[in-house]
C-alpha cells in the first residue's frame, strides 16, 4: 500500500479548509494568524507533493517552498507586531471590537 499524490493533495485541501475556518471564524487576532500559518503549511505540502511525485529532479518547487517559508516568517513578525500595537491602543485583540479606523 502506497500513498499517492491524491492523498497528499486531499490532505492539503482539508488542512487549508481548517485554516480558512480559523481565519474566518476566530475572534482573537493571534488565532487568525495561526489559521494563516495552517493555510501556508497546506500550500507547502502541496508544493512538496508535486515536487516528489511529478518533478523530483527539479529545484523550482523547493525554491517556492523556501519563499513561502520566508513570507510566513515575515508575516508572523509583522502581524504580531501589529497585534501588539492594536492591543496597546485598543486594549483588546478581538477583531470584532476593533472597528475604528482613526483616532
Amino acid at each position: 500500500m502506497t500513498a499517492n499524490l491524491t492523498h497528499y493533495l486531499a490532505l492539503s485541501a482539508a488542512l487549508f479548509g481548517i485554516g480558512l475556518y480559523g481565519v474566518l471564524a476566530r475572534r482573537n487576532a493571534i488565532a487568525v494568524l495561526m489559521g494563516i500559518e495552517l493555510m501556508l503549511n497546506a500550500a507547502n505540502i502541496n508544493f512538496l507533493a508535486f515536487w516528489r511525485f511529478l518533478a523530483p529532479n527539479s529545484v523550482e518547487p523547493q525554491v517556492y517552498v523556501l519563499v513561502v517559508l520566508t513570507v510566513a516568517a515575515a508575516e508572523a513578525a509583522v502581524g504580531l507586531a501589529v497585534v501588539l500595537n492594536v492591543y496597546r491602543s485598543f486594549g483588546t485583540v478581538n477583531l470584532d471590537e476593533i472597528a475604528r479606523l482613526k483616532g
Partner: peptide, 28 residues
C-alpha cells in the same frame, strides 16, 4: 464560515481525488 470551509476543504479534496494524477515518476 463553517459551510464555506467544509465546501472549500471537502470540495478541494474531492476535486483532487477525481483528477487523474500520474503515478510517481522517479526516485528522489
Amino acid at each position: 464560515a463553517v459551510p464555506l470551509c467544509i465546501f472549500v476543504g471537502l470540495g478541494g479534496a474531492l476535486m483532487m481525488a477525481r483528477a487523474p494524477w500520474p503515478a510517481i515518476q522517479a526516485a528522489a
